[in-house]
Amino acid sequence: MLKVDIQKALSHFEIDVSFKVENKIVVLFGASGSGKTTILNCISGIDKPDKGKILLNNETLFEEKKIFIPIQHRKIGHLFQDYALFPHMTVWKNIAYGMKTEKLAKDLMTELSISHLKDQYPHAISGGEKQRVAIARALATEPKLLLLDEPFSALDDDTRTKSQKELLRLHELWQIPIIMVTHSHAEAKKLGDEILYVKEGKLQDNKIEKNPPIYQ
């Protein structure tokens, strides 16, 4: 379980959020520039909050002026908006970079049907393939939490629908908490077990909207 209670001053407003995530898909939903990405970055350790506390499975990742576990020790998978694949490495090298075991990495590639791309470089594969490589790369490290920053925004409609279904399937399989950032309302409703509305860095009355996941 993830517990987040953080404050961070940005140039135009202050981020001040508090929420818990269990083994569910929680969607951070809000307009561009509302601080969603910064919240994700604070959780994975790329950014540092000013105040507050972040707990993951009873381990403190951040506590004001006391604890700041560096990114590389947090065991959090982070999928970036443009995937941030290593452009100078093949698909296999990308996935193998932080893999726990070779078997897991290979299973993930089969699972996500990207095994045939293993010797390709990122510039030579399609957007949907890149996204699947990025997901495989993140899961191969056996993260305790997965953060997805606008994971479907760069995809065409067909690929997006397919990828969304795949995410739900993977979540069933892995049973880890997932936080997904999106500015699409439809996507939030479709994928989120819980939706947190973010506006100018604040959660809007902690409104939680439950949806039956579409695969049930």
């Binding site: 790329i46 990114i71 065991k75 998978g77 443009d82 941030a84 290593f86 970079y97 932080g98 490290t141």
Partner: peptide
């Protein structure tokens, strides 16, 4: 973020 991605994978 390419570097950040590597850090999230546990690289020093």
């Amino acid at each position: 973020n390419i570097e950040n991605a590597a850090y999230t994978m546990g690289a020093s």
